[in-house]
Structures are given as structure tokens and as C-alpha cells.
């Protein structure tokens, strides 16, 4: 794919915004529309945009972690969040919450960790598929 200068320049400014927005979606998800799934998709869209503007190899460098590892790690995070309650003597997958609120993040609990896992997984899966397909072409 030939990159266009206009697109490349625009992307430079849009990507941070998209990533922040995706993170914002993830964090507000518990109370307002959003969540790990939507957040992960937005982040994936950001990297897809970067790939279109600068090529897949650049995008892979920009992501700086192999998507395969990213989604395995996401799945592991979700699994760990499900196992944590066992340590507190509660059934598998019970939501366990800390009493104190943390600035920016808000209330912290295992469902939030689970959502982070979903976010990472969706980001990893989408970028893996997009990058593999795009690489095919080059």
C-alpha cells in the first residue's frame, strides 16, 4: 500500500486520541456505555489506521508486542481475575471489590481486571487478523 502524506500526518495526531478514547471506554464501561470489548475494538481500529498509513511492519513496531502474546496475555488476565476470588475463599468468578476508590480508575475489583483482559484480547485478536491479512498483500 502506498502511504499518503496527508493520511500519515493526520494519523499522527489521531492515534493518541483514539488510544486515550479506547482506554476511556474501558474504564467508564462499568457505569456508562463502553467496556473492554468496545474499547479493544477502538484501539484495534487505531492500529489498523496506523497500518494503512505507514505499512504493517511499522504498525507492528508501533504496537511493540506480538499480538499473539497480547491476546494470550489477555486470556490469562481474564482467567486470573476469575481465580482471584478463590484466594479470598469465595467461589470461582465471584466479583471481589476493594473498598477504597482509586483516582481515575474508580472502584477496583476483579470484574475490572476481567474487562482489562477482554480489552487486551480483543485488541490482540483484531490486530493479529488485520496484520496477517495485510501482510499477505505486501
Amino acid at each position: 500500500m502506498k502511504s499518503s502524506l496527508i493520511l500519515a500526518t493526520t494519523v499522527k495526531y489521531i492515534i493518541p486520541l483514539l488510544l486515550i478514547f479506547s482506554f476511556f471506554l474501558l474504564l467508564r464501561g462499568h457505569n456508562e456505555p463502553g467496556g473492554g470489548f468496545a474499547g479493544g475494538l477502538v484501539a484495534a481500529a487505531a492500529y489498523a489506521l496506523y497500518a494503512i498509513a505507514n505499512g504493517v511492519e511499522e504498525a507492528e513496531k508501533f504496537l511493540s508486542i506480538e499480538p499473539l502474546k497480547l491476546f494470550s496475555f489477555g486470556l490469562l488476565t481474564a482467567l486470573i481475575s476469575a481465580l482471584l476470588p478463590l484466594l479470598a475463599g469465595k467461589p470461582f468468578m465471584t466479583g471481589v471489590w476493594l473498598d477504597n476508590k482509586i483516582p481515575v480508575i474508580g472502584k477496583l475489583g476483579t470484574p475490572i481486571i476481567f474487562d482489562v483482559g477482554v480489552y487486551l484480547l480483543v485488541l490482540g485478536v483484531s490486530t493479529k487478523i488485520i496484520f496477517s491479512l495485510a501482510q499477505e498483500e505486501e
Partner: peptide, 30 residues
């Protein structure tokens, strides 16, 4: 569920096991 967004609370808490299955399928598909 400590959340006001019912959809998300269902996804990550009440029905988290389903979500778990789904994300595992996604990973396998990738």
C-alpha cells in the same frame, strides 16, 4: 455488581463465564 451499566455488568460479572468462553473462541479463531 457495583456498576450502573447493566449490559457491562452482565458481561463481566453476572455472565462472565459466557464471556470467558467467547473470548477463548475469539483467541482460537485468531
Amino acid at each position: 455488581g457495583k456498576g450502573r451499566n447493566i449490559v457491562n455488568v452482565i458481561l463481566v460479572d453476572f455472565r462472565a463465564l459466557d464471556t470467558m468462553g467467547e473470548i477463548a473462541v475469539l483467541a482460537i479463531a485468531a
